[in-house]
């Protein structure tokens, strides 16, 4: 489904973020990308979201080079990738309901469909009672659940999560991890960038280890070994 093909990313002042990274992600796969700060985890995810352009190589999503796509084609790819970030990235002037509804709206769903589907997604993340709250009125864990709910609402092929538990306490961390597992079981692929050893070891899924911008390990039922 997704292929990183010999990707390198060099930022100005010759700061190498990724070097000759090649990687394939199959549908419904759960992959943890681990590595220390600056190893290139976030850059890898940003390249998939077409937020950054590679210096060399290409990123294919269903055989389309995402960095060669323009306009509507790129939007269609982005709508198939749900993104979850450490800093939540919720729209502060929209309520929880509206933040999730946005994902449905951009897909062109009708108001009636949105009215029916948003409560179901909220139910999935156990936040039905917070529908009318604004992000500022939520805890960190709740905000991250809303971000996940919005990603689910996109009905993506893959959910890309960049340190989604980085700002959360122990209980919320596991709530989010469990949700990601649940989402994966529903049929969405998950690409999780983290440096949380406990999470990675507990998941017992494919683990890609990055060091200084290069893949040093890619194990099927991997562990956090750094």
């Amino acid at each position: 489904m997704i292929q990183f093909d010999n990707i390198s990313k060099i930022y100005p002042r010759n700061s190498i973020a990724l070097k000759n990274v090649s990687l394939r992600i199959k549908p419904k796969e759960f992959i943890s990308v681990v590595g220390r700060s600056g190893a290139g985890k976030s850059t890898l995810l940003k390249l998939l979201l077409a937020e950054e352009k590679p210096t060399e190589g290409r990123v294919l999503f269903k055989n389309h080079d995402v960095h060669k796509l323009k306009g509507k084609e790129l939007l269609l790819v982005r709508r198939k990738i749900g993104a979850v970030f450490q800093d939540f990235k919720l729209l502060p002037t929209k309520t929880v309901y509206e933040n999730i509804a946005l994902a449905f709206e951009v897909k062109g769903r009708t108001n009636q469909e949105i009215k029916e589907d948003v409560p179901q997604v909220l139910e999935l993340v156990n936040l039905r009672d917070k529908a009318d709250n604004f992000p500022a009125e939520l805890s960190g864990g709740e905000k991250q659940k809303v971000t996940l709910a919005r990603a689910i609402a996109q009905q993506p092929e893959i959910i890309v999560a960049d340190e989604p538990t980085g700002n959360l306490d122990f209980i919320n961390t596991w709530d989010i991890v469990n949700l990601l597992v649940k989402i994966n079981q529903i049929g969405h692929a998950v690409l999780l960038a983290t440096h949380d050893r406990e999470i990675v070891n507990a998941l017992n899924k494919r683990v890609i280890t990055l060091e200084k911008g290069q893949i040093i390990k890619d194990e099927k039922n991997g562990k956090y070994t750094l």
Binding site: L49, E51, K72, L75, L76, R78, R79, A83, K89, L90, L91, P92, T93, L102, A103, E105, V106, K107, R150, Q154
Partner: peptide, 16 residues
Amino acid sequence: REEIEIMRLVGASNWY
């Protein structure tokens, strides 16, 4: 600007 970036990431069109 961050809200604009979020909307772009969700896949909203420029017009939207």
